[in-house]
Amino acid sequence: MTRTRGEHVLLWGGILLAVGGSLFPFLWLVSTSLKSPIYVEAIPPTWWPDGSLVFYRNVLFEHRLFDYMINSAIVAGSTTGLALLVATPAAYALARLRLPGTAWILRGLLCVAMFPQIVIAGPVWRMLERLGGLNTHWGLVLPYVALTLPLAVWILATFFNDLPRELEEAASIDGCTTGQTLMYVMLPLAVPGLFTAAILTFIYAWNEFFFALLILTDPAKHTLPVGIALFQGEFTMPWGEIAAASVLATLPLIVVVLLFQRGIIGGLSAGAIKG
């Protein structure tokens, strides 16, 4: 498995390109967010920031970015919890209990995962209007749970399916009910799968824009993406503040990615290919 010289050049060239291409635009944003206001609009732009934190101060203390972050955390956290609560038993039943219609349900879920948001947005909006769910966090969490369920169920079903059957059978012989088997035997084994599903659900809810734009019109309830998209004032284009807000919105996700890169890669491909 030794590489020739050419292969080495190719490999490291590719690595450099991929990493550089992925990171450069974001690093530019970071650099912009750390500049003083006069340098943001310098022409030509400057490469290096002067380390000013004025934009961070502005977005945190004058633009209620902190509120947006809390809102996003509430919405994404609740979505993740609820989605897993609903998805786990369903995935287990679909993977193991051989119910009639399992195949159709799994196929249907894949189709549902592909629904364009706009086709369900109008009716969901009217439904929430009747239930008084507009401008509330739960009004956003419910559709998010529905939208993330298909992927969560697929990831978990795939995972359950790969677990050895012997343990369950042993549990069954010992007189465990199905629920007990899931709770005490399967769930501890499925932690990595749960974990992957949780991360992907969380990232989805943290990043979603379309529904958040329609359902949360009160700025006090905005999530980060809506806050950032509507950041522009009537008469000013605050690029520095936008950059700082964007960096703050993205940092938690980058931390998640750095920590759990392996689980994410496994989980994403589980939903799609491994089957």
Partner: peptide, 15 residues
């Protein structure tokens, strides 16, 4: 490297 490549995917589309 894998984590670096995942960064664009994790960034909110609005950002």
């Amino acid at each position: 490297v894998r984590a670096a490549i995942l960064v664009p995917w994790a960034i909110p589309t609005v950002v």
